[in-house]
Each structure stands twice: as C-alpha cells, then as structure tokens.
Nucleic acid binder design. Sequence first.
DNA 1: CATTTGAAATGGTTTAACCATTACAACAAA
DNA 2: TTTGTTGTAATGGTTAAACCATTTCAAATG
Lengths: 250, 250
Amino acid sequence: MVKPFQMNPMFKKAKQNRAFEDVVSQIQEAILEGSLKTGERLPGERQLRETFQVSRGTLREALRTLEQKKLIQIRTGMRGGAIVCPVNTQPVSESLDLLLRYQKIDLKELAEFREEVEGAVASMAAKKAKKKDIKELTSLLELIKTLLDGKPENWREVIKVDNQFHLCLARIAGNRVFESVLSIVYDNIFRYFDRFLPKEEGVTERIYKDLYGIVEAIKRKDDQKTMTLIQDHVKRFDRMMEANQSKVFS
Amino acid sequence: MVKPFQMNPMFKKAKQNRAFEDVVSQIQEAILEGSLKTGERLPGERQLRETFQVSRGTLREALRTLEQKKLIQIRTGMRGGAIVCPVNTQPVSESLDLLLRYQKIDLKELAEFREEVEGAVASMAAKKAKKKDIKELTSLLELIKTLLDGKPENWREVIKVDNQFHLCLARIAGNRVFESVLSIVYDNIFRYFDRFLPKEEGVTERIYKDLYGIVEAIKRKDDQKTMTLIQDHVKRFDRMMEANQSKVFS
DNA sequence: CATTTGAAATGGTTTAACCATTACAACAAA
DNA sequence: TTTGTTGTAATGGTTAAACCATTTCAAATG
C-alpha cells in the first residue's frame, strides 16, 4: 500500500460529486469574499433553485450545511429566507464544546492554553492601552466592587464581569485572532467555573484584588508585570478548579 | 424595548419546530452517549425514514447537519450509509479556519499570534521531549539537509518540512488545543509564505541552521533557550514577509 | 481458480404538491 | 385620523413517488 503522493493538509479530497456541495461552496465564497454582505437576504428557495439549476431538495441540503456553519440563518414566513450572518465564533465554540464534553480534550489542556494566551494578550494590551481603554477597564472594576456583597446571585455576576474584563483586554491588545480565540475559550470554560469554583466571598474578593493590581500595572505601562499578574490570576483559579475537580471525581 | 430576561449565553433559543432538528438531536445524543459507537453503520435512509416517521427529504436534511458536525460520514453504494465518526478536532479546525477567513485576518495579526503560540509550544515541547521525539525532529532536519541544493522545486519542499517540524513540536508539547490551533495558523499563513518569502537558497539554509539550533536546545532540555530560538526564527521570517509585502504594495 | 456479469442495496436528485408562518396591505371600527 | 382586524401572498417546512449512479457481492462463465 503506497500513497499516491504526499498528502498536503491544505488540500481536501475533491468529492465534489454532490450537487449541493457545489452550491454550498459558491454561496460560501460569495459570503467570505464579501459580494454577499452581512444582513443581506438571499433570494427565496424557489428562485435560488432556478439560479443553481437544482431541485429544491438539493438546494435545501445546501442551506442546511451553510446554516450549520453559521454563515446564514433562516427566517420563515413572508419576506423570510436566508440572511447572511455576521462573523461568529459560535461554530468553533460548539465543536470545541463537543470535544470537551466527550473528553477528547481535557480541561487541563484548555486551561494551559488559556494561561499562555492570556499572558500574551495582557502584555500586548499593556503596551497599547489608551486612556479610553483604561477607563473601560476601571469601570468594569467598579462594577465588580458593587457586587462584592457575598450574595450568591452576585457570585455569578462577578465571574461574568471578570470574563468581560479579560475579553476587553483582548480587544485592547488589537489582534482579532487573539480576541476570537480567547472568546472561544471563555465560551467553553465558563461552564467549569460554575461547576468547580467555590462559591465563596473570598473568591470574588480575590478577583477584585487581582484585577485591581492588573489595571494599576497597565496604567504604568508595565507589560512584564501585567503579564505575570494575569498569569498568576488565571493560574490561581485554574488550580482551584482542578482541586475541586479531583475532589468530585475521587 | 426590554429583554424578557438576561440572556445567558449557555442557553439557546428552543427553535425545535423543525422536524429534522429533532432527528439531529436524537441521533447526536445516541452517538455522544455511546449507544451508537464509532465506526458503526446506521440503517439506510429508507429505513431511518420509517423509524423517525419523516419523509426522506427531511431525514436527509438531518443527515447533512450531522455530517457537517463531523459526527457521521456518508458512503454511497451498496452497504453504504452513515458511519459514526470518531470525535476529533477536525470540526474545530474547519470552523476556526472559516472564522479567520471571514475576518480577513491579515499577515500581521496572524504572524503576531503565531509568534506567541510557537513560543509557548516550543517551551512546553522542550520540557516534555522524549528520545523518540528528538529522533523524529532530527529526521526532519536531515530531510531538509538533503533538500538544500538551491533547486527551486525544493524550496517549497523545505518550507513544507519546516511546517511539519513546527507541528511536530506542537504534538510533542502534548496539548491538542495548541496542536489544532497551530495547524490552522499554518494552513492560513502558507499562502503568505508562498507569495512573500524570497525564493533564495539563503532562506532555506537559514531555516536549516535555525532548526538545528532548536533541536540542540531541546536535547539540552533548555526550554527558555528553545523558546527564544523559535521566536527569533519565526520573527525573522515574518519580518522578511512583511518587508516584501510592503514592497509589493508601495 | 480467475474473470465477467448482473442483480440488489443504497445514496443522490428530481418533481409536484400541500401545510404553517409571517408580513403587509386593505379595510373596518373607534 | 388612528387603531384594530382580516385576508392574501410570499416563503420556509414537509411529504410522496419516482429514477439515476455507484458499490458490493454472488452467480455465471471461461
């Protein structure tokens, strides 16, 4: 058994024998390339059927695929149809969710990844932060302060604002790859926060103190310090979760 | 206009009014729960149609969705049908790839991200590399050596083996999140290599020298040195490309 | 024993119809 | 005039029955 040639991972098998796949790639390319813009409505199924010269069933199989990729979204009723979706991290988050749920990937791996990404993001953000950005971070910090009353319903809120704080840093860092990737990580890790972080006042206070120090370091444009502070912060909570996780499963 | 309640990103709208979605979730649950095992073959469309009491068209829309999620794969012909796929990182990779393309991520952002990720990966790999791993890296290095003859058709080959080297490091690092992410970064950055890296012998020789030093550092388990070497290596080529890019567009 | 051939199973596609939902315009009532 | 009602047409969702193309495998053939 010999492979015909060294498979290049950039190429996929050209199994373009199904008509609906051809329709999918044509519409997908139009969206990615920009000739179909976000929010734009595609013609109805009966008209698209004509355009692509396929049956309505085949066309609908193409639409199902595009819908699954979150490139379009379908609305029913008059003036309904396929609407082009904005850029969306959801499909990545969903497939990562499957991997985590079925333990093809360990939470530890995701946590390790997060620690590194957060460190890089924080350092970049510290270098680039403008006054406006620091103001935004400070206001998130203030928001957390108001939630530090130990009420159980506010515990969850604090975690959410903490997430916002981290995503805000990613935006400040000014790199959309980091921003998207971190957003995907948070989509998935939130569930574990909820399950494995102790719901105590100490946790939320610790978050406030950590973030306060981070904002101070950013104000001083001390990117090295910002990075180590963020990494300590992230690692502290990852360790907490791991401890509770092993408790639960032992 | 007031939202009825604070939308929690963990919950999705229960739009279960489409029959095929019900079929999708039933089959998906069966797969994820384990009652349908990897490699197992589902009944044919005509029989499934009966089971779920839907038309063949509706059933096929469900199959398209499951196929897109990479939970099943379809084979045609007698004894064909839907086969349950092993859960792997492919759907994450594909959707991340789509996300990067849709955002029209440019070389600068991608390169910046790559530099950070490669640094982290290299450091982790240096800590964990076994003899077998070092052997694999060395053999890739040897392969590059044989391609250092300045022939233009080998230039591309060297770049490919360089990519393999980096992905090999990610595997050695033992974190599948890093591994899939880096793999996608390479898929996307390759076209810039091809367009903007000077096709000179000096480039391939530089690659060889860089990787040689990296393998040596890994042998010494010097993770700090490995990290800086990798980052220098990556940055050098990113700067080269950026220089050529601005030349082209000025 | 090897090869050819043909039948059956199965996915891929088409056609034509009907149902359910939605937006909107026309109309009616206040 | 404003507001509420109603009908209608556009549109997605679903069904049914048929035919084609591909693949497998067993039977026939050499």
